[in-house]
């Protein structure tokens, strides 16, 4: 592997200003990019938020989740349901429900008319489900490979369930055709740019929040549990609450990322949240660097950019490429791109 630590050392003088430079570029992006490219960038940043959570649990907690798509989907469907319900004239139901022969809105859809309920649902439903699920597994000291396999089963079950409940979830096609969110028309001038800035801001909040968390005693204990779970127990700590909280935070970030992605992409469907998309989320982080928050965001941006470029021209090539990337990164570059710049993260 090329050792870029020399380059990294050369960059030392710029390092203090680098984050501010990137932030300035991020804020200015709407003035330089076309509407299409800005939308793409916003989507990838939403995925970057999901990647941050994976660094927390996988890089620092040693917890491999192959089911982040479930939490991504919970956030995405929550905002999608809000947009579907909020635009409806009183007494009507979304078109796909009519086609499936339903006559009234399901009871659990109705609270999503409220923006506050929707925001709370995006934040809390993934976090609570993540906490409950991970507690059920971790408190019995089941982890590692077993946990990864169970999360994959969860991703499969969730996607299958959504596909089979066509009349209330939109089935395979998912939910699409959104017009407004929280009272703002999605195609009104300024709104896409505003949403982009919101995404950028949330990405920064997630980044700074996790940076702080990982540097705290919490982060230290999480890493200790990753490297020697039983030693942590002998020291008098129970690792379970730390792992559960980390998993819940990662689930919440995935939910927020999913909601923002849905806003920018204008669609949420089982094809975006099942087994394969869930594991793709891990590959962004594997490529960017599992121990590095910045690396993971860069990984999410790069992989999705590459995917967009390759799969539009050669759709079948992308799967070969992604498979090869998986094998290459994991065997030869376990610290990802960030590992090329030594001293970062970890």
């Amino acid at each position: 592997m090329p050792d870029l630590s020399i380059l990294s050392a050369r960059l030392d003088p710029v390092k203090p200003v680098l984050p501010w430079l990137l932030l300035a570029l991020g804020i200015a992006a709407p003035f330089a990019l076309s509407a299409y490219d800005l939308n793409l960038l916003a989507r990838f940043m939403a995925m970057g938020i999901v990647a941050l959570g994976i660094v927390l649990i996988w890089g620092h907690g040693g917890i491999l989740s192959l089911g982040q798509g479930v939490f991504f989907g919970l956030g995405g469907y929550a905002i999608a349901m809000h947009m579907k319900v909020a635009d409806l004239p009183a007494g009507e139901i979304p078109d796909f429900m009519l086609w499936s022969g339903r006559e009234s809105l399901p009871l659990w859809w109705t609270p999503f008319a409220s923006p506050i309920f929707t925001i709370l649902a995006i934040l809390l439903v993934p976090a609570l489900l993540g906490a409950l699920f991970s507690w059920a597994v971790f408190h019995r000291r089941v982890g590692g490979t077993y946990f990864a396999l169970i999360t994959q089963a969860m991703a499969l079950a969730f996607a299958t369930l959504i596909i089979s409940r066509q009349d209330v979830t939109g089935g395979f096609n998912g939910l699409t055709d959104f017009y407004s969110v929280f009272g703002f028309g999605l195609s009104s001038p300024g709104v896409p740019t505003g949403l982009y800035w919101v995404t950028l801001a949330l990405l920064c909040v997630g980044f700074i929040g996790l940076r702080w968390l990982l540097a705290s005693r919490f982060g230290m204990l999480l890493r200790a549990a990753r490297d020697g779970e039983n030693r942590v127990r002998f020291l008098g700590y129970s690792p379970t609450p730390f792992k559960v909280v980390a998993f819940a935070i990662a689930a919440m970030l995935a939910g927020v990322g999913g909601a923002l992605f849905t806003l920018h992409a204008g669609v949420v469907s089982p094809a975006l949240i099942g087994v394969v998309p869930s594991i793709e989320m891990v590959v962004w982080v594997a490529i960017g660097g599992r121990y590095s928050l910045a690396g993971a965001v860069v990984g999410a941006l790069l992989v999705n950019l590459a995917r967009d470029a390759v799969s539009s021209a050669f759709p079948e090539l992308w799967l070969y490429l992604m498979g090869a990337l998986f094998i290459f990164v994991v065997t030869l570059l376990p610290r990802g791109l960030a590992g090329l710049f030594k001293g970062k993260g970890a």
Binding site: G62, L64, L66, G144, T145, A148, I279, V282, V283, A286, E316, L319, Y320, M322, G323, A324, L325, F326, I327, V330, T331, P334
Partner: peptide, 17 residues
């Protein structure tokens, strides 16, 4: 073991395609 999981998933994608 967890990296084996990911690397062999890559193999799985390639074989399916």
């Amino acid at each position: 073991p967890l990296d084996t999981l990911l690397a062999t998933w890559g193999v799985s994608l390639i074989l399916q395609q």
